[in-house]
Simulated assay, not measured.
Amino acid sequence: MGRSYEQLSLDDRCEIARLSANGSSIRQIAAALDRSPSTISRELKRNRGRQVGYKPGYAEQRARARRWTGSRLDREPGLRRAVLDRLGQGWSPEQVAGRLARDYGRKVISYESIYRFIYAQLRRTSDYSWRRYLPRGKSKRGLRGKKSSSPASFIEGRVSLAERPIEAADRKVPGHWEADLMMFSKYGQAVLTVHERTSRLLLGIRLVSKVARGVARHLVRLFADLPNSLRQTVTFDNGTEFACHRALHGLSIETFFCDPHSPWQKGGIENAIGRMRRFIPRKTDLATLSNARFRRLVAAYNNIPRKCLDFRTPAEAFSRVLHFECESTTPPLQR
């Protein structure tokens, strides 16, 4: 049966001070208080004043000051401001903790401490605006609806994801993309999003309509400006807005589709859209969102550090890939 331990009380400290002043050894004091010698030794070392020696009242104050008095974010206003500022920009607690560690070369705070701080504010204040600091901003998980029939049979030339090149799956080779529509509450409003699997770069295009020909035309214009090696494959779900996917074949881009009812197979773009919801919620009226504001929000997403990138940002990761590609394809100087 394990031994139970209790904190020293003020009476215990008074007895320690009396016995120590009388010249008793640490083991004699420990025997008198029925404590271990290490407890008495630690108490005398940690709670002794340099000038006053060991005094019960002073020792009690020192011990209380060391006890946990709340979250570090409660105790350190500077750190709290730095964390909340980044959370307010759309960073997740894990991204905040990881980037601080990268910037300072040491662990500053854990993401679990940040989560606990936010949840503590929700409980303490009942102010649900604190949820805006959380990655999804939800208090409850939504229920999944029943599966309906899939429009996959209406897509000509559809190739299953199972036939996608193996190098696209491990994310080590750039040039493999995922695409999807970011939908909104107001009928007809949508944003075409594409996501590069290696760098996690996200590009967004506001759509006037979801007609398949128009969506394909936007995709062709977007990928036409990239080097050949950075436009190898694109993966879609089975929405009919991607029915004209074969227009990309003219750029030597292979197109693949998820299995019916399996959008998780293109998890990168699904996760990216979920993150973008913090900036552009589903209830947003795109007609009131200026193009400049829209571009700034996409840029904000691409400048948030990611754990999977060793807390680099997608913009930093893609710029490195693009730089190396341009360097490797630049023709040598003629002598």
Rank of each mutant, 00 (worst) to 15 (best):
L289D: 08
A32K: 11
E76K: 06
F294C: 10
I273K: 15
V234W: 06
I280V: 14
E156F: 05
W264Y: 13
L248H: 07
L10W: 08
Q232S: 11
V234Y: 06
T235C: 02
F242P: 04
F236M: 04
G105D: 08
R278S: 14
S153A: 05
S199A: 13
A101S: 11
V215C: 07
Y187S: 15
E167M: 10
A212S: 06
W130Q: 01
T233P: 00
C258P: 08
L248K: 07
R50W: 01
D170Y: 09
I253L: 07
F184Q: 15
F311K: 00
S129I: 03
P93S: 04
G267C: 14
P263S: 14
T255R: 10
W177P: 07
S113C: 08
F318T: 02
D85C: 09
R27N: 07
D127L: 06
N291R: 09
R72Q: 09
L87S: 03
T233I: 10
S113Q: 05
I26W: 01
R320C: 04
F311C: 04
G214M: 12
L201A: 10
N303I: 09
V108R: 04
R171A: 13
A272Q: 15
P263I: 15
R221C: 02
G268C: 14
R306W: 02
T198D: 07
H261K: 09
G78R: 05
E76S: 07
Y119H: 14
K283Y: 04
T288Q: 12
G188S: 11
Y54P: 02
G188K: 10
